[in-house]
């Protein structure tokens, strides 16, 4: 057997050029999306849990929880849906990126990629973009589910689109947090477990399901400045869902701006840390 009978091809795209970097990101994104669709039950099962949550809250708890100022359960359902969107995205995206990244580290794929003349952050950006693709699927299912339990868009398509953009941007930012975690732990199982440690406090210590005004001072302050609270508040406004009376907290009065700023900040810091981790991976 002669492996060199045909001359091997000569690479045309040189490392370091913008075209090559962009290409690397797309190649890795495609690879990650292929990995996801090859085992569809992973995505399907990850969607079942939020659906079960929505149904539980909509038909069991909505009767006993009450929204300040609105006593009927239907109002609570509309109120809670933006919270669910944010919570589901946070869990889906961080779980996805951290576990997949830890898997790649453990399986030796990171070593394979690092031995290739690839753009520095391409593997990581490709991971987060694949998460974004998956988040769009997750959102689609969640929205259908929400429409079924009576949630509606009240302020038109444009504002709704802006709300979805804010949600996906927040998801994308959290994906970078997941990448940092995935690169920092030694096993995918650890990544999966660690997500509960920060995601439960982050999602529940917010305005997603309760009014911050009912909380003790320190917790109230944390809930008001929680990045997810801003996103929840902003999407409630943009969808026209019933919200909470403004508490006077600055983030609650400027939710769109605060949500955007948080997302950009988290993504930038997350990416910086992730790239640093990636470069020293294994040493």
């Amino acid at each position: 057997m002669n492996v060199s009978a045909t001359a091997p091809p000569v690479p045309e795209l040189r490392p370091g050029t913008a075209a090559k970097s962009l290409r690397d990101v797309l190649v890795v994104t495609r690879r990650n999306v292929i990995r996801t669709v090859r085992i569809p039950e992973v995505v399907v099962l990850s969607l079942v849990q939020p659906i079960v949550f929505v149904l539980l809250f909509a038909y069991i708890f909505a009767g006993s929880f009450s929204l300040p100022g609105a006593a009927n359960p239907a109002a609570y359902r509309e109120y809670m849906m933006p919270g669910f969107f944010v919570q589901t995205l946070a869990f889906a995206t961080a779980g996805n990126s951290s576990v997949s990244m830890a898997n790649d580290m453990q399986s030796g794929m990171v070593d394979r990629f690092r031995s290739l003349p690839m753009a520095r952050g391409a593997l990581l950006t490709g991971r987060t973009l694949a998460d974004l693709v998956q988040n769009v699927m997750v959102m689609t299912v969640m929205v259908l589910c929400a429409l079924l339990v009576g949630w509606r868009i009240h302020h038109g398509v444009l504002r709704a689109a802006a709300a979805f953009a804010l949600l996906l941007l927040m998801g994308y930012a959290l994906s970078w947090v997941g990448v940092v975690i995935g690169l920092s732990v030694r096993a995918p199982e650890a990544a999966a477990t660690s997500n509960f440690l920060w995601l439960f406090p982050l999602t529940f210590l917010s305005n997603a399901f309760v009014a911050p005004s009912t909380l003790p001072t320190v917790l109230r302050w944390a809930a008001e400045w929680n990045p997810l609270s801003a996103t929840v508040q902003a999407t409630r406004q943009l969808f026209g869902n019933p919200g909470l009376a403004a508490t006077g907290a600055w983030p609650a009065q400027h939710p769109v701006l605060v949500s955007l700023s948080w997302s950009v900040l988290i993504a930038v810091v997350g990416r910086t840390l992730a790239v640093r981790r990636y470069r020293s991976a294994g040493s």
């Binding site: 990995r35 090859r38 030796g108 070593d111």
Partner: peptide
């Protein structure tokens, strides 16, 4: 360079 063996993996789902 080219790497083969435990230094670098192939993607099992591709």
């Amino acid at each position: 360079i080219g790497l083969s063996g435990q230094f670098a993996a192939v993607d099992d789902r591709l």
